[in-house]
Simulated scan of single mutants.
Amino acid sequence: MGNWVVHYERVGAGDPGVAEEINGVIDAEARGQVATYEPSATKTNPWTLNVDGRLMKRPVTISALFTGKYNTDQPNMPFHTVATRVFDCRSGILIDWDNLFTDKKAGLARLAEQTKRIIPTVYAPPKRPGVWQFGSEVAPVDDNYRFWIPTDEGVELHFGDWQFGRGLPVITVGWSELQDLIAPEFQAITG
Rank of each mutant, 00 (worst) to 15 (best):
T61C: 07
I118Y: 03
P39K: 03
A30H: 11
T121N: 14
D52V: 05
D15F: 05
L94M: 04
L168F: 06
D152N: 12
K116C: 08
E185W: 02
F87T: 04
W47T: 07
Y8M: 04
S91D: 12
V34R: 13
G92A: 13
D152H: 06
L55H: 01
T72F: 02
E9A: 14
K104R: 15
E21M: 15
P75S: 13
L157S: 04
N23Y: 08
V173L: 07
L100G: 02
V6L: 04
W132H: 06
D73H: 09
P16E: 14
R117E: 13
R146Y: 01
H7T: 14
D96W: 03
A64E: 10
G165H: 02
H80P: 00
G17Y: 11
P140L: 09
W47C: 07
A35Y: 01
F87K: 02
D161F: 05
P120S: 06
S40C: 03
V18P: 00
P46H: 13
L94G: 00
L181I: 05
F159N: 10
G14V: 02
E20P: 00
P16R: 14
T72K: 06
K104T: 15
T44C: 09
W132D: 09
P125F: 01
D98E: 15
D152S: 12
I149P: 09
I93A: 11
W4V: 03
R166H: 12
L168E: 08
P184Y: 04
S40E: 10
K57R: 15
Y37E: 10
K127Y: 08
V170G: 03
T72C: 11
I189N: 01
E153K: 13
A188M: 06
T42H: 06
L157R: 01
A30W: 08
G191N: 09
E185F: 00
T190M: 15
V86R: 01
A183G: 05
P126T: 10
T42N: 13
F186S: 03
G107V: 04
G12S: 12
A124H: 08
A28N: 11
